[in-house]
């Protein structure tokens, strides 16, 4: 749960930065755009489990001075890297769904590109992508189990330990129920957010 919450905060920020980089206009920003594209391609293409092994076992194996060898640290870094790639694409879809006329209007009012993004585009974009964002976070929450590979005991690993001690599979079911107990409230919360947003939007239309 701690792994999930810490990663989530970093992912939300990091992914937005990548999405914004990718939406920068003009040839000047081509290198930054290219960087964002390469990043997303790379980390969406490599299986999460592989990233975790590479960073969690591979990097510490280099024994570089000053580089942490803590598996929890590398587990969180791996999840942030992989999920940021997915979430950046979700953000980008949101940003692109805001009609270009809105940016044009904002710019004609004298807002800079940054201000346009900050006050006009991103607030609308984020609201539109809340359901797919939640999708990724449920995925993230489940994938925290992969950090167990590096030796950190989380819920799934704990159930494996119990199963192996008794040759009885019930602890797996208990863990599955725990995961569901966490994701269902999250799903209902998002539903409520969307519904509230919709109500406000419709109220605005009537006025």
């Amino acid at each position: 749960m701690k792994i999930f919450l810490v990663s989530e905060v970093f992912i939300l920020v990091f992914a937005l930065a990548i999405a914004v980089l990718r939406s920068l206009p003009g040839p000047v920003f081509f290198p930054l755009r290219a960087l964002a594209v390469v990043y997303v391609d790379l980390f969406r293409g490599v299986p999460t489990i592989l990233v975790i092994y590479i960073l969690g076992f591979g990097v510490p194996a280099l024994q570089l001075p000053g580089v942490p060898i803590d598996p929890l640290f590398w587990g969180v870094v791996s999840l942030v890297l992989v999920y940021s790639a997915y979430v950046a694409e979700v953000y980008r879809a949101g940003i692109e769904s805001v009609h270009p006329s809105q940016s044009a209007a904002a710019r004609s009012l004298g807002l800079t590109h940054g201000q346009t993004l900050r006050f006009v585009v991103i607030p609308q974009a984020v609201r539109r992508v809340i359901p797919p964002l939640l999708n990724d976070f449920i995925g993230l929450q489940k994938d925290t189990a992969l950090v167990g590979l590096l030796g950190v005991v989380e819920a799934f690993r704990q159930s494996q330990i119990e199963v192996a001690a008794s040759f009885n599979y019930t602890p797996y079911i208990a863990t599955a129920i725990l995961f569901i107990a966490l994701t269902i409230p999250l799903a209902r919360f998002t539903d409520w957010l969307i519904a509230r947003d919709k109500r406000r939007l419709q109220a605005g239309r009537l006025a």
Binding site: I69, L149, G151, V152
Partner: peptide
């Protein structure tokens, strides 16, 4: 204690000083 999938992974962790 750290718990790994296989003894091979525990060996890696020992090598890595984890």
């Amino acid at each position: 204690p750290r718990v790994y999938d296989s003894v091979a992974d525990v060996v890696t962790a020992l090598k890595n000083k984890q």
